[in-house]
C-alpha cells in the first residue's frame, strides 16, 4: 500500500534533496553565528529523508549506517565534553575557545560573524547534528516501514 507519487513530485523531490541537506548543514555549521545549531540543522536534514520516503515510497536500507552514526555522534559529544576534564578542568569546560586555529578565534561586541570562533561549540554542534540526523531518520524509517508506506530498495 505504499504510494508512489506522480512524476512531477518525484522529480522535484530529487532536485530538492541536495539543497535541503546543504541548508541543514549550513544551519549546523553556522550554529554559533546565526540562529540554528545541531538540533535544528539535524531536523532539517532528517526531513529530507521524509521527503524521499513520501515521494518515492521506497528507500535504501541504511539502518545500520544510521545507527552507527548515531552512536558515534553521541560518543564524540561526550568525549568532546571530556576534553576539558582531561585537561584538568570540569566537564563541559570550553578549553579550545580563543586558542587559535580553526574554531579558535576571538570575537567581541557586534560583528559580522566569523566562522573560526567558538572553541568546542561548533564541534559539538556538528556531532549533535550527526546524532539528530541519524536519530530522526531512524524514527521516520521505522515508522514508515511499520505503516507499510515504504519498500526497501536493493
Amino acid at each position: 500500500m505504499n504510494v508512489k507519487m506522480s512524476v512531477v513530485v518525484r522529480t522535484v523531490a530529487d532536485i530538492m534533496v541536495v539543497p535541503i541537506v546543504v541548508f541543514g548543514i549550513y544551519l549546523i555549521l553556522h550554529g554559533h553565528l546565526t540562529p540554528g545549531g545541531g538540533f535544528q540543522g539535524g531536523a532539517v536534514v532528517a526531513s529530507s529523508t521524509a521527503l524521499l520516503i513520501v515521494a518515492h515510497g521506497a528507500m535504501k536500507d541504511n539502518k545500520t549506517d544510521l545507527s552507527n552514526m548515531e552512536s558515534t555522534g553521541l560518543t564524540l559529544f561526550f568525549l568532546l565534553a571530556m576534553v576539558g576534564l582531561i585537561m584538568g578542568f570540569s566537564l563541559f569546560y570550553n578549553s579550545l575557545a580563543g586558542t587559535g586555529g580553526i574554531f579558535g578565534g576571538t570575537v567581541s561586541g557586534i560583528n559580522p560573524g566569523y566562522i573560526n570562533t567558538g572553541g568546542t561549540i561548533p564541534l559539538m554542534n556538528i556531532v549533535v547534528g550527526m546524532e539528530v540526523i541519524a536519530a530522526l531518520s531512524l524514527i521516520l524509517w521505522m515508522m514508515a516501514k511499520r505503516s507499510g508506506s515504504l519498500e526497501v530498495e536493493k
Binding site: 507519487m5 506522480s6 512531477v8 513530485v9 522535484v12 532536485i15 530538492m16
Partner: peptide
C-alpha cells in the same frame, strides 16, 4: 517558486 506548484499538484491529484 519550486515547492508551491508541486504541492498544489500533489493535493489536486
Amino acid at each position: 517558486l519550486v515547492t508551491n506548484p508541486t504541492g498544489a499538484h500533489a493535493l489536486a491529484r
